[in-house]
């Protein structure tokens, strides 16, 4: 398998606080790679580091991010912008804030197409209609004339999926794309993402906190805690026999309607503390090594 994205020992701090402490992660071509963890684990920061949209206080202190052979960390901003939209794109979490409320859907979609693919006004509109049909929007012509607030959450997410796939990218980062949706809509959106991804052979880094969603859509999974990947493997292997105590603890804390007898066990405090200590000790050792 060819790696589309290779993250090697990525360290990131926000201010003085370490957020990522040596993340290793490889997304292979045509696969959906789940990145699962709780809030504060650093999963969103991994995605933002790849796309180069980090908050201003964040600083990458070490490591490499390679996309299709290109070193993303030392890439000039202008070249990186050349990749975004064309070769890699993003499906964001909150479709309302990701769309500009004062422009019609049509304008927002054609802007991407005209800018990234250099299409003319008419060609871009035609392509936008095709894209909306692809994401199974019933009346694409009407939706193009609508404003984001006129659409339901599921419809808005479809528009963003259309926009993410617009230029046929090799790689997409999906950051909790279904968290804000009802379960029935979530299923449709996941199905849509999976279908487009398989048809076009796109690789996806799927960031989520929901083990259920990971089980359904991902080929491979990495579990992240306190800025480090604690376990990584194929989805079938990880769901059959989770290895790391933290992965097991996540399963034990997840309620299941089909197993109401299982007692829900929160992730034990000692385990969290131990993982934090491990991560801190690892940081310390690295720093000593560097100064030695």
């Amino acid at each position: 398998m060819r790696a589309v994205l290779d993250i090697d020992d990525l360290h990131l701090r926000i201010g003085r606080m370490p957020v990522l402490r040596g993340v290793d992660l490889t997304v292979e071509a045509g696969q959906v790679h789940g990145l699962v963890g709780e809030s504060g684990a650093g999963k969103t920061m991994v995605g933002r580091a790849v796309l180069g949209i980090l908050p201003s206080a964040a600083r990458i202190t070490d490591g490499h991010v390679t996309f299709a052979g290109i070193d993303l960390i030392n890439l000039p901003a202008a070249s990186r912008r050349g990749l975004l939209g064309r070769r890699m794109s993003m499906i964001p979490q909150d479709p309302m804030t990701a769309l500009n409320p004062v422009y019609r859907i049509g304008r927002q979609l054609t802007d991407v197409l005209r800018h990234s693919l250099g299409l003319g006004r008419q060609a871009a509109r035609q392509r936008a209609l095709e894209l909306l049909e692809q994401v199974r929007i019933a009346e694409p012509g009407r939706v193009l004339r609508q404003y984001p607030h006129e659409l339901s959450g599921g419809m808005r997410q479809r528009v963003l999926i259309a926009s993410a796939f617009a230029c046929g990218p090799e790689f997409i980062i999906a950051d909790e794309p279904t968290t804000a949706l009802d379960v029935t809509v979530q299923r449709e959106i996941l199905r849509l993402i999976r279908k487009l991804q398989q048809d076009k052979g796109t690789a996806i880094l799927f960031v989520t906190h929901d083990l259920g969603v990971v089980a359904k859509i991902c080929d491979r999974v990495s579990v992240i805690h306190s800025g480090r990947i604690v376990e990584s493997g194929t989805a079938s292997q990880l769901f059959a026999v989770p290895q790391h105590p933290y992965t097991k603890a996540l399963f034990a804390a997840t309620p299941r309607y089909d197993r109401p007898g299982n007692r829900l066990v929160p992730v034990p405090r000692q385990l969290t503390l131990r993982l934090l200590e491990d991560a801190a000790a690892y940081d310390q050792r690295r720093r000593m090594l560097r100064h030695a």
Binding site: V183, Q186, G212, V213, K216, F239
Partner: peptide, 21 residues
Amino acid sequence: RTLLEAIPLPEIDPAWIEDEP
């Protein structure tokens, strides 16, 4: 039934994402 089927349980089930609901 639709609601229950739509819940993604944390176990591998390729049919879940392929079937029409």
